[in-house]
Nucleic acid binder design. Structure first.
Ligand SMILES: [Mn+2]
Ligand SMILES: [Mn+2]
Ligand SMILES: [Zn+2]
Ligand SMILES: [Zn+2]
Lengths: 152, 152
DNA sequence: AGTATATTGAAAATGACTTTCATTTTCGAG
DNA sequence: CTCGAAAATGAAAGTCATTTTCAATATACT
């Protein structure tokens, strides 16, 4: 099991790119995150740590981190691209609460099986997929129910 | 079974909005489409028909068409919002060929069942969902296989 | 060390929308 | 009908995430 920094550095080298302190800093901060982080999130976290890395460079580095397989891009419907760990993290799908923004991750063997059947049926070669469900989490449903009881 | 223009006009009226030739033209063109059309596509089709409708108005009208339930917004990963018919069209998911751009629509009772189980498990109230598979369609796989045989 | 090559980051550009606002159109009351 | 309040239009400007530009700087082979 290879170290994540190793994977990144190997990728950098294999592409004829160069190692820089900025890239190391961005990777470092990303490795400390969990969940779904935007470039803006990353840039803010770096600043908080007194690591001055330009916005464009954060962007460019996150792209590299995704390209080498350490991260996966995730896009819900708010126009912001986020990144989540992909290395040593099981693939999963998302339940996105449109009220509070919470994201629940889920897996389903049934869905995986159903997908295989679909792919076979259409002779489609899958590279990636996403299954996002938008709605209300349990808590937000309760809040809404509570408020409508009070007002109704 | 209500006529689509009727649904649109009723919605317009119910919202205190006004009927205009531009709105009629946009709806008319949309009703003649199938598949997944962008605002740009719509604007182009309208121009081709000598119907001069401003870009912003096409945008605004497509939003109304979606709001009244005639269309559904679809976003793949190219940053462009498209619209597809929703009225009298079964809900479905997509296989998107990243090579030729073709979009295959599919349905799966197995997936629907699996989804119900997931929603129950997390107590999540779904408003909408999307399941997009990205990869290569059968034809593009064959093309790729053919070319690698020639060159290899 | 020296040098070719890649990187950085501030600022400008991009591109898909969205908003602004002066002008035009709609539609229901009179 | 005819008016006029209210809404719609569209050209142009604004937004906002992301991408590109390019002069200055850093990196990594010899
Ligand atoms: Mn996730
Ligand atoms: Mn579709
Ligand atoms: Zn919630
Ligand atoms: Zn294809």
């Amino acid at each position: 099991m290879m170290d994540e920094r190793q994977i990144f550095n190997d990728y950098i080298k294999s592409e004829g790119l160069k190692g820089t302190s900025q890239r190391a800093a961005v990777l470092d901060v990303f490795l400390g995150t969990e969940g779904h982080v935007s470039v803006d999130d990353m840039h803010r976290m770096l600043s908080r740590r007194k690591l001055k890395v330009g916005y464009a460079t954060v962007h460019r580095t996150m792209k590299l981190i995704a390209q080498c397989g350490l991260a996966r891009q995730v896009r819900f419907n708010d126009g912001i691209t986020r990144f989540e760990h992909q290395y040593m993290h099981e693939h999963h799908h998302h339940l996105v609460c449109t009220q509070c923004g919470k994201v629940i991750e889920f897996n389903s063997d049934r869905i995986d099986d159903a997908e295989k059947i679909i792919l076979r049926k259409y002779g489609f070669l899958m590279h990636s997929h996403r299954y996002d469900v938008f709605g209300l989490c349990k808590e937000c449903q309760n809040k809404k129910a509570g408020s409508s009881v009070k007002s109704g």
